[in-house]
Nucleic acid binder design. Structure first.
Lengths: 109, 109
DNA sequence: TATGAGTACTTTGCGATACAAGATATTCAT
DNA sequence: ATGAATATCTTGTATCGCAAAGTACTCATA
């Protein structure tokens, strides 16, 4: 068993939350999102992010618009919908509960 | 998309960490582990926990011994191995890094 | 000595999703 | 034209939480 594998598992479910957090701040496109996550020490690859964005869009949590780039092909900028903001609020609570639970277990030695 | 579904995803990878945390404190068997996790507001069911314990045992992170019960069939008490303790230390770091990352994203508005 | 309740462990099948790897498309400089 | 850089999308694999069903042990009681 490899620690990297477990870290990957930990990211599951949390990634969705992180992406929504980023998009609440401002509309953004895939490469920027990956860069922002990397800044926060969260490694994500394209093959993970693109399907995730499509999933969230299909659920009505994200919308998008094409914007021309000064260099390269046009970019798909995603942004939170109203439904997405509500959902993010739910995730905030879920995160707080889970991180509280874990800290409780950590201190319970 | 349902919040429960996402919370279930969040538990992935974290559950392993939580179970190891509990077993570092003292040897325990499945029903007790489930009860302890429930105390920390982490819902887990048997169908999740038993395969997880078997996985960790097969990886050499856990050992176990049978103990008679005063009521009912014997119980399988799991405990951390030396390898398990090392692994748990790695998970501690992984958790701190990920929760730091998320808190960083949350405050970055 | 059956029988049923309670407790404990195990297995099977399904759905969700991170990731690697590769494919496709657009733009621009040379 | 052509190739490099930038973007998006798709396919296949492995992992894991969970529901549900199955197996097995113990003990009280009829």
């Amino acid at each position: 068993m490899i620690v990297e594998n477990v870290k990957s598992q930990m990211r599951k479910g949390l990634l969705e939350y992180c992406v929504l957090l980023l998009l609440r701040r401002e509309a953004s496109y895939a490469s920027d999102i990956i860069a922002d996550l990397k800044k926060a020490s969260l490694i994500v690859v394209e093959g993970t992010l693109y399907p995730l964005l499509t999933r969230l869009k299909n659920e009505g949590l994200l919308g998008y618009e094409w914007r021309e780039s000064t260099q390269g092909p046009p970019r798909k900028y995603y942004c939170l919908t109203e439904k997405g903001e509500t959902f993010l609020s739910d995730l905030e609570m879920a995160w707080e509960q889970i991180s509280d639970s874990i800290n409780q277990l950590r201190n319970n030695q």
